[in-house]
């Protein structure tokens, strides 16, 4: 398994709660190359759920995440892009990936990336997350799979003041995304075929 994963490249769109934790899981599992894009910097308010540390506040997330991933595995290859993704840049940056993981915060950005991958990136599998706010309700987390699209989460719990994103459910969604990515990366070698 690790031999196959070492030759794989995964795109991560967004390095917040979903992207940073998903990236850590993929590196620990043995994925060889990650392509990570995020324009933002680490804020103190991110430390409640994102894979960063207090001494990294103020740094670009993509640079801090690269450092943290290299502390897990010094041999991991990363391509970092400190940019705000739009359809053009997303299609270009992730073109050579085996799968793209949607790890944005806003619903609009999630829709933009899914539509970009489906509309412009022929055959590219995408894993998105929708609905991970609050705490508890572990059983409501699920996966919708159809062709090259997979969506994890409860598909309904929107972030709000009363229902902020909290580490456990964000981490569950991030790890579900990583788990689906492994299925795609490993299944393909076992004859898994893309459709849709």
């Amino acid at each position: 398994m690790r031999m196959i994963l070492a030759g794989k490249k995964v795109g991560i769109a967004g390095a917040g709660g979903l992207g940073s934790n998903c990236a850590a899981a993929l590196v620990r599992a043995g994925v060889g190359t990650l392509v990570i894009a995020d324009f933002d910097s680490v804020a103190e308010s991110n430390l409640d759920r994102q894979f960063y540390f207090a001494d990294q506040v103020g740094r670009l997330k993509v640079e801090a995440l690269r450092d943290n991933l290299e502390r897990i595995d010094p041999g991991v290859r990363t391509e970092i892009h400190p940019v705000r993704l739009d359809p053009e840049s997303a299609a270009a940056i992730f073109a050579a990936c085996d799968v793209v993981v949607e790890a944005f915060d806003s619903a609009e950005a999630k829709a933009m990336l899914i539509e970009t991958v489906l509309g412009r990136m022929t055959g590219m599998p995408i894993i998105a997350a929708s609905g991970l706010s609050g705490y508890g309700r572990t059983d409501s987390m699920r996966v919708l799979r159809s062709g090259r699209v997979r969506v994890v989460g409860d598909l309904e719990s929107e972030v709000s003041v009363e229902q902020p994103p909290v580490a456990p459910r964000v981490g569950i969604a991030a790890n579900m995304e990583a788990n689906e990515a492994l299925e795609i990366l490993l299944g393909e070698d076992a004859g898994w075929r893309r459709r849709g």
């Binding site: 709660g17 929708s130 994103p165």
Partner: peptide, 12 residues
Amino acid sequence: NSVDLYHLVSGG
């Protein structure tokens, strides 16, 4: 027809 409906909500 096979219809996929993905409801996208903010959070990440």
